[in-house]
Nucleic acid binder design. Sequence first.
DNA 1: ATGGTAGGTCTCCTA
Length: 262
Amino acid sequence: MQITVASWNINSVRLRQNLVVKLLSEESPDVLCLQELKSPLEFIPVETFEAAGYRHVVARGQKSYNGVAILSRHPLLDAGSRDFLDRKEARHVSAEMENGITIQNFYVPAGGDIPDRSRNSKFGDKLDFLAGMRDWFRERPPARTILVGDLNIAPREDDVWSHRQLLDVVSHTPVEVELLAEVRESGNWTDITRRDIRQGKLYTWWSYRARDWNASDRGRRLDHIWASPDLVGGDNSSKVLREARGWERPSDHAPVFATFEV
DNA sequence: ATGGTAGGTCTCCTA
């Protein structure tokens, strides 16, 4: 049995619900994970998603900031959420499918502009959040689990438009890249996107501030799909739907997809 | 070297 999972930082689920429906109708993944809903739980437009055939939603909401949701064509069981910084931020939610696959959906803190925790507490929060993920996976090694989300780190040289110019830019600093590697190793996760698309520049995010995001193409691969070891053996295929970054009033992120044989 | 855009609780915060 094949399942296709997608992950998309939507940057306001209410403003862009039409784009979510467009993605669902054109691509019809089994599961779509969203981040940055920027909405309380009660205002997430679940009826819109139901009408598009995604009747099962497990979400955590928060007014104005963060927010994560898992939309599915198939039944889901709420498998809980963790508050890694103990601040009531909606940055994680998980759900279990009837086939026993667990989906973990993360929105890692962006970390502010200065990559130094003594001058920028947001950078410290990001490192603490990642350390919390690492310690949690060490305690509880994941099985039959797909981890997705906006991890806000582009780990490889070919995950950014210029490795040299981004070495001291938050999202690509060595301390973040090393910590993300610890998170990955702690759960024996495989970076499925890079298992399927092994070489070459690959981005999922382009700044709103560029005059022409497509022409300048100064992107970063911030959005990820990982799998636990027991899901890595079968045939996978992955893609980034870059065209979604060019849709009308777009998110600054493009969705990433992975198909699994489970 | 700088500043550029976008969304929401909207003249300030986050990304």
